[in-house]
Amino acid sequence: MNPSMRAVGWLLAFAIVVAGAVPWFLWGNSQLIGGLPLWLWWHIGWMIVATAVFAAFTRHGWDRYLGGIDA
């Protein structure tokens, strides 16, 4: 993958992580699962997804864009 495609990929990944943290598509929904609203379960799951994306970024993107201390 060329470097600019990769950068756009990360940008897109972060945009999706930000946009999906609030489940807009469940607006007005009050369905309960296990006593908690469905939209709260979505948010909980999404934060775990965000952690996975962040973990991948620290391995494959972090140093590429701002560099390391001894590079």
Partner: peptide, 15 residues
């Protein structure tokens, strides 16, 4: 408020 603070702190602040 969980969503507001989660999005704010867990995601935007992390970025």
């Amino acid at each position: 408020w969980i969503l507001v603070m989660g999005t704010m702190d867990g995601i935007l602040f992390a970025i």
